[in-house]
């Protein structure tokens, strides 16, 4: 039985919920109130997650407290198709890992700007936004050239990977941190494609995709 220690409004938690959903896994949720309860700082939670990070995933005897580690584990353990983390292809494994790194960089820039705006977290919001724009520009160029080559996803495969799930949340929520996506049309087209992945779940603040095109896979 899989248990996710989860906070609805956290984008890292949302990455884990997305992965569980697209993999079609059943799990139970334990609410950990990040705000205002600061439950992630309690003794019982620190025992699970020494860095007081959300989410935490427990599966049988495994406990993991890092969003990207959770995605890697879920795909490696529970994806019979082997597509979400294509372990047999060294190039794809490298690409996936590179984009997981970008998702962390987004969390500390676009995500930090969002926490500054909504919960008043102290951060240099001008620097955080500038960094987020650098990342979005890189992402937009990569996706635009990919589209020219007939590639729809972050990695050079004809299907999405956990990289798409990891990068999506902080991109899709960036406007709440004052980071507009108006200048990144290829990014906007890609977020629409992610919303049409079979099994996609929205979260508070994000709405489901339109039915303009068939869900993926077609």
């Amino acid at each position: 039985m899989i248990t996710l220690f989860d906070y609805e409004l956290s984008s890292d938690c949302y990455q884990a919920r997305l992965a569980l959903a697209v993999l079609g896994l059943h799990y139970s949720r334990v609410d950990v109130e990040f705000y205002p309860g600061r439950e992630h700082e309690t003794e019982w939670f620190t025992e699970l997650s020494p860095l007081q990070q959300l989410p935490v995933l427990r599966d049988e005897h495994t406990t993991l407290y890092d969003a990207q580690a959770i995605l890697v584990y879920l795909a490696a353990r529970h994806d019979a198709t082997g597509t979400w983390l294509p372990r047999r292809d060294p190039v794809l494994v490298g690409e996936v890992t590179q984009w997981l790194g970008l998702s962390r960089a987004l969390a500390s820039s676009a995500g930090a700007a969002r926490l500054h705006e909504s919960l008043g977290h102290v951060t240099d919001v001008t620097a955080a936004r500038a960094r987020a724009h650098t990342l979005l520009r890189t992402l937009d160029e990569h996706l635009w050239f990919g589209e020219q080559e007939g590639r729809s996803w972050l990695c050079a495969a004809d299907h999405p990977t956990i990289a798409d799930l990891a990068v999506f949340p902080d991109v899709a929520l960036s406007e709440e941190g004052g980071v507009s996506r108006i200048d990144y049309p290829a990014v906007r087209r890609w977020t629409d494609r992610v919303k049409r992945i079979d099994g996609f779940v929205p979260r508070s603040g994000l709405f489901p995709g339109g039915s303009a095109a068939a869900p993926w896979p077609r």
Binding site: E8, L9, Y35, S118, E176, R203, S204, G205
Partner: peptide, 8 residues
Amino acid sequence: QSIFGQDK
């Protein structure tokens, strides 16, 4: 909070 997150 979830409701308010939808309005935001």
